[in-house]
């Protein structure tokens, strides 16, 4: 495409958004052994013994689960949204929208728990739950974005002799991209929260201190898990925000 040469000029260089680094650096700070217990000690909420596995391992497990789920969600959700928005597939689109609505309504915990009989304990049912739950915003935003593409632009593309594939890649997807990316962002950020529930299924991650804390009535432990997962969510939100086109 000539586009490369045509876009090169004018856009100028974007200033590096330093603000994005705030949440990730806070997260890293909290992960240094001893920092969080010391910060929480004055609140006098409960004993914090040494963590086993260490907090950074829990965070990495958590992040890994969410990232894997987001990858699968992208691989499944985008083609799905594309497939059901082709002309002559209104019924399939309605089905997809209904399923997405159901996914939004059914409690997360129920989805995760229902995956256990099928996949056993551990990270597998959690991943399945995250995928199912993560698909909801990606598919619904994907459909909404593709549906909102200006029909006259599509008509012009057809009139110029673009094939269906070219129309999709050159017109529809670029135009749907902002909405789609917003969906991916929502999906990822919510899944950080959903993944904490996975600890109840033995998936590990940052839900572990929360669940342990709740069952041992150790609020400090709950706070550790909550603070770290909130920081992880905010960090991912900030990083993904970089991809959002500016308006």
């Amino acid at each position: 495409m000539t586009s490369s040469s045509l876009t090169a000029a004018r856009t100028g260089r974007r200033r590096w958004p330093w603000g994005v680094l705030l949440w990730p650096s806070l997260l890293l700070l909290c992960l240094i052994p001893g920092v969080l217990p010391r910060l929480l000690a004055p609140l006098n909420l409960g004993e914090l013994t040494a963590f086993d596995p260490p907090l950074w391992r829990l965070t990495l497990t958590h992040l890994g689960l969410v990232a894997l789920a987001t990858g699968v969600v992208l691989g499944l959700g985008v083609p799905l949204a594309v497939a059901v928005t082709r002309p002559g597939r209104v019924a399939l689109r309605q089905l997809a929208e209904t399923l997405v609505g159901l996914g939004q309504t059914v409690p997360t915990f129920a989805i995760l728990a229902l995956a256990v009989p099928a996949l056993g304990f551990g990270w597998k049912p959690t991943l399945l739950g995250l995928i199912v739950y993560g698909l909801v915003p990606v598919v619904s935003n994907g459909i909404a974005g593709l549906q909102s593409v200006d029909t006259s632009a599509l008509d012009a593309a057809r009139g110029m002799g673009m094939t269906g594939r070219q129309r999709l890649l050159r017109v529809e997807l670029p135009l749907a991209l902002p909405v789609l990316l917003a969906g991916v962002r929502t999906s990822t950020v919510y899944n950080v929260g959903t993944a904490t529930v996975g600890a109840a299924l033995g998936a590990g991650g940052l839900g572990e201190p929360i669940i342990n804390g709740l069952s041992q009535q150790n609020t400090a432990l709950v706070l550790v898990g909550a603070v770290l997962s909130a920081l992880l969510a905010l960090s991912l939100d900030a990083v993904l925000g970089l991809f959002a086109p500016r308006t």
Binding site: T108, V189, Y190, V192, G193, T194, A195, T196, V197, G207, I210, I211, G213, L214, T219, V222, L223, G225, A226, S229, A230, A233, L234, D237
Partner: peptide
């Protein structure tokens, strides 16, 4: 953006 489980806690 907070996990519901964490919020509960």
């Amino acid at each position: 953006t907070l996990p519901s489980l964490a919020l509960l806690g």
